[in-house]
């Protein structure tokens, strides 16, 4: 489907660019992101589209090309097509994987095109003009600090990890560092692959294996959904709370409503793509481009501040 959407988007763009052409001096910005294959990516796609639409209205002189790729190879093709057929002046890219995308993005940068990299850094430093990064160690650290604060006397927790990747490793390392010396024990850790069904199964088995679990770091809101269902089905009362992550709207809503099981969430906002597109666009229009690294820190969402992180229209 992402295919058709992309095509449709392309058509809209063409029509718009036709209109924009009349005014001369059009600047084209290419945006290349992974397709919506899971919740977070779905949210990211939503924010990207929304931002593109909004900016095109605000700045008639800007023209956008948005593509969503289902794997790293397809993303390379997308970028090559943008350069070859649309003559982009700037590229905003959220790389599928760092290594395979580095050389093609490098060659785009060398041709003088402005490059903004989002979330996943490239393998070679200094290619991009602007790096809008999520903070994975920080994501783990914020979660760990919250756990330590909630459980001053320590306790036994289980951890669900994502798909084995650098991102996951950095988060878990950050978390472990933050809970060090707090008396909190990680009694079990298993991959739930950022997937509801997998995390449900893993949590069921954890509940079988351990008679006492004080809290769960699900490390992701999709996984938290599976974990909560498993706990509810088992009817276990010993678990005090589940901490997810990423800021899925259903979870943020539960935080906002003061749910005991979900007292907090940690952001890893899919909206960082919007920030990146906006910064790039504004930079190009104002002739005063912002370059360097812009880290979007992970923030703790609690009942008090939940409202600002609640996007009811986003699919995520």
């Amino acid at each position: 489907m992402s295919y058709m959407k992309t095509a449709l988007m392309g058509c809209t763009m063409l029509a718009m660019s036709g209109a924009a052409w009349a005014q001369d001096e059009t600047t084209v910005i290419g945006v290349s992101i992974p397709a919506a294959t899971h919740g977070w990516a779905g949210g990211m796609n939503f924010h990207a589209q929304e931002t593109v639409e909004r900016l095109e209205e605000t700045y008639p002189e800007l023209d956008f090309v948005l593509t969503a790729a289902s794997d790293a190879g397809a993303q390379v093709n997308d970028i090559e097509d943008m350069v070859a057929t649309r003559g982009i002046d700037a590229l905003v890219v959220l790389p599928f994987e760092s290594d395979p995308l580095t050389p093609p993005i490098q060659s785009v940068a060398e041709s003088g095109t402005w490059v903004t990299v989002v979330d996943r850094g490239l393998s070679v430093e200094g290619i991009e003009d602007l790096y809008v990064a999520g903070d994975n160690p920080g994501f783990g650290r914020v979660a760990g600090e919250y756990m330590a604060e909630q459980m001053p006397d320590g306790g036994d927790i289980v951890v669900l990890r994502g798909i084995p990747t650098t991102i996951d490793n950095e988060r878990v390392a950050g978390f472990e560092e933050a809970i060090e010396g707090s008396g909190i024990n990680i009694i079990d850790m298993e991959h739930g692959n950022w997937n509801r069904d997998d995390s449900f199964n893993v949590m069921q088995d954890f509940l079988q294996k351990h008679d006492q679990i004080d809290a769960v770091w699900a490390s992701d809101d999709d996984m938290a959904v599976g974990v909560l269902a498993a706990i509810e089905a088992a009817g276990r009362e010993d678990i005090q709370f589940v901490l997810g992550g990423a800021g899925m709207k259903e979870m943020v809503q539960r935080v906002m409503e003061g749910d005991d099981m979900i007292p907090a969430d940690v952001t890893y906002p899919p909206a960082m793509i919007a920030t990146a597109i906006e910064m790039t666009a504004v930079g190009l229009v104002s002739n005063a481009p912002v370059s360097g690294t812009f880290t979007i820190g992970s923030v703790l969402i609690t009942e008090e501040n939940a409202e600002q992180y609640y996007y009811p229209d986003s699919p995520f």
Partner: peptide
Amino acid sequence: SLVTWLADGGTLS
């Protein structure tokens, strides 16, 4: 693809 489209890339609940 159809389910991704129905869910708008996210999750249908």
